[in-house]
């Protein structure tokens, strides 16, 4: 049974302006997928459709073998957690600890009193994401990099098998990117989660992810393993972004990096 099965889905906000055009792919457990493509190619929309935040207009999405729409809201929230794009977040007046505790909502009863178990999980997640030192700070006093990790922490506190991350690395300096990556590695190691990430960093996508889903104008352009993508990376990247890339090897020759050059 696959973790996620996206079956020929289409989506549009307004008629005659399709955002997603018959996208299909299958994600197995513990895989890491990077969703890449130009701005406006439908990456975030795809992520929201998988999380059932948007209803697909045709096609279907299954999670753990059942259609997403067949789950009850809280049931689905125990399978999939979502981190919105940094630009689309409202910052509620909570401390980091309070905010991470909010991620325990799907496990609480109707009245939602957090129990001892919830608090223990929240503390563990704070440590796992290097946010324990920030626990008593208010959200709006944090830097962009800190906020990214706090939002990730709240999603991890949901204890789901699947994480949907919308540009978790944007607005981060190299150090914070590395810290974020370390958090993600630890999370995957500890909870064996499946990760789907929207990203604009092609090198990050190619070096840290097992699979690539590339969209052009809402249509699937490349869907498959990163290994196969790398066999023809320059050509594929040029087709995806309409810009030429040059290839550079790292000092030890193990990794290849792609630098954008100019409009093709």
């Amino acid at each position: 049974m696959s973790a996620i099965n996206v079956n020929a889905i289409s989506f549009h906000y307004t008629e005659n302006a399709p955002v997603l055009k018959t996208v299909s792919f299958e994600v197995q457990e513990k895989e890491r997928w990077a969703i890449i493509g130009k701005n406006g190619s439908g990456k975030s929309t795809l992520l929201k459709c998988i999380g059932n935040l948007l209803k697909v207009k045709s096609g279907s999405i299954s999670v753990e073998g059942k259609p997403v729409t067949s789950y009850r809201f809280k049931e689905l929230a125990r399978l999939i957690a979502y981190v919105p794009q940094a630009g689309n977040r409202s910052l509620p007046p909570y401390s980091v600890r309070e905010f991470v505790m909010l991620g325990r909502f799907p496990y609480q009863g109707f009245f939602g009193l957090p129990g001892l178990q919830d608090r223990k999980i929240a503390e563990a997640v704070l440590q796992l994401t290097d946010t324990d030192a920030l626990a008593d700070r208010l959200l709006h006093t944090l830097s962009g990099g800190e906020l990214q990790r706090v939002f990730l922490a709240a999603a991890v506190a949901q204890k789901t098998g699947i994480l949907l991350l919308d540009e978790p690395m944007s607005f981060l300096d190299p150090l914070h990117q590395a810290m974020m990556q370390r958090s993600l590695d630890r999370i995957q190691e500890e909870f064996a989660v499946t990760i789907l990430t929207v990203t604009h960093d092609v090198n990050h996508a190619l070096n840290r992810f097992s699979h690539i889903c590339a969209l052009t104008n809402g249509a699937p352009f490349y869907i498959g393993t990163t290994v196969r993508f790398k066999e023809n990376a320059r050509k594929l990247l040029q087709d995806i972004y309409s810009i030429t890339f040059s290839e550079i090897s790292s000092c030890n020759g193990h990794l290849k990096y792609y630098l954008p050059e100019g409009v093709a």
Partner: peptide, 23 residues
């Protein structure tokens, strides 16, 4: 009072609230 915990979630944004199982 019965909706109090859901108010916390709504304040964090509707997408996030929805993804955590709030109707």
């Amino acid at each position: 009072v019965l909706q109090l915990p859901r108010l916390d979630q709504l304040l964090a944004g509707e997408d996030l609230a929805r993804s955590r199982g709030v109707d």
